[in-house]
Amino acid sequence: MLDTLQVITIVVVGVMVGVEFAVAFVINRILDALPGDSGQLGRAHGGRMLGAVMPVWYVGSLVLVTIWAVAGWQQPGTGLVVTAGGLLIVSVIMSVLLLVPINNQAKTWTPENRPADWKRQANRWDRYHYVRVAVIIAAFALLAAALV
């Protein structure tokens, strides 16, 4: 049973990391290269779409890691799992305090109502997101190491 939980947790966290990595290093770069207002409109749409899914994914990942840590308390690697859980908590706190406030504004922007400094705000979101991606990659690596 613990083996199944570990595999499910690794897959869920790994796919989340992949999506967030793709947003940071692929999707946003593509959107930024589009002509006219297309990039800003794409970011707003992505903010609405992923903004609805990612909170469930982050919290769900944290719940799975917590269950793994509790169920495998006496197993080797539990310290790595607990540390990964701590990093996921950091990523959730970062999201709530730093990224969500920017995203909540940006997802409503259109070319007609966006603020003059919208690019600066998007760049600030990107910088915070890079740090969050590094944090969740570290958590994922710790979970993978805990299986070895």
Results as ranks from 00 to 15, higher is better:
Val133Pro: 03
Ile89Asn: 00
Val100Leu: 09
Phe25Asp: 11
Ser95Val: 09
Ala69Trp: 04
Pro111Gly: 06
Leu98Glu: 10
Ala138Glu: 14
Gly72Cys: 05
Leu143Tyr: 05
Val17Pro: 01
Gly14Leu: 06
Gln121Leu: 15
Ala22Asp: 08
Val92Phe: 10
Gly42Thr: 11
Pro101Lys: 06
Leu98Met: 12
Val13Ser: 04
Leu80Cys: 01
Ala139Ser: 12
Arg114Asn: 10
Ile93Asp: 04
Gln121Gly: 03
Phe25Lys: 07
Arg43Gly: 12
Asp32Met: 05
Leu142Asn: 08
Glu112Asn: 13
Gly72Phe: 01
Glu112Asp: 15
Gln105Ser: 13
Leu147Glu: 10
Pro115Thr: 00
Gly36Met: 06
Trp57Val: 14
Leu41Phe: 00
Ser95Met: 15
Met16Glu: 03
Trp118Gln: 05
Met49Asn: 02
Tyr130Met: 14
Glu20Trp: 09
Val133Ser: 09
Leu34Ala: 15
Gly86Ile: 09
Pro76Trp: 09
Val81Met: 10
Leu31Gln: 15
Leu87Gln: 03
Glu20Val: 01
Gly42His: 06
Val11Glu: 04
Gln74Asn: 13
Ala33Ile: 07
Ile89Glu: 01
Ile89Gln: 03
Gln75Asp: 14
Met16Gly: 02
Asn103Ser: 15
Asp37Cys: 05
Glu112Arg: 08
Gly42Val: 08
Val133Tyr: 02
Pro76Asp: 12
Val11Asp: 05
Val81Lys: 00
Gly60Val: 11
Ile136Glu: 04
Val96Phe: 11
Ile27Lys: 08
Val65Trp: 07
Gly39Ile: 03
Gly47Val: 03
Met54Arg: 08
Leu41Pro: 01
Pro55Cys: 05
Asp117Tyr: 02
Trp57Gln: 06
Phe140Tyr: 03
Ile27Tyr: 02
Ile27Glu: 01
Arg124Phe: 02
Gln75Ile: 07
Phe21His: 08
Ile89Leu: 13
Gln74Cys: 01
